[in-house]
Amino acid sequence: MIPIWYYAGKKMSNELRSRQVPLLALAAAFSFVIMMFNVPIPGGSTGHAVGGAIIGIVLGPWAGVIAISVALILQALVFGDGGITAIAANCFNMGVVMPFVGYYVYKAISGNSEITSSRRVIAAAIAGYLSLTIAAFCTGVEFGLQPILNHTADGVPLYMPYPMSVTVPAMLGEHVLGFSFLEALITALIFAYIQRTDTTILYGENSPLQKKKQKLGASA
């Protein structure tokens, strides 16, 4: 994880210079807060989104890495529920896999379509779905690696009692059929809202409006 953070940090300080700290801090605060939004789901219950994909789409994957990592570290430090020793694995699954998968899936599907086209909404939905599913798959693999890497001499696992044949289907199953759909829906809804209101915040777009904004930013 450290080389990824290091590279992301270098890239950010070149791209953003003095804007780096406030932008990443606010983006991290947003990544933290997004999990507070409860969404109604069928069956009268509620769920919440992880938001890795939409953050990747809006900020670009590298800024997404830092923003989500900072949010996860805050969660682990301030609330002690993320676990300090698992922080690297956590940041990899949610902070690296999600924004990267999200951003590139979105880019690949939306291609050169108009920024307000509905194709991009669908692209965002698929990006949300795949990003969470692949992150869940990675988590399953990491869990499954534990008994292979760490076990006592007579084969009793030290940390995770389950082999990969249990962890991967368990993690994938619940996500493919459930959580990923919610993530897809939420990612699409947020994206549609941004399309209607302010498309200039999207990362890597070259619309005339955005160029104007960048010019303003450069002179400021």
């Binding site: 932008l23 606010l26 983006a27 809804l189 809202y193």
Partner: peptide, 13 residues
């Protein structure tokens, strides 16, 4: 909810 999240994102940026 999706709209509010988008709004929060725009506001925070």
């Amino acid at each position: 909810v999706g709209g509010r999240m988008g709004y929060t994102l725009i506001r925070s940026l």
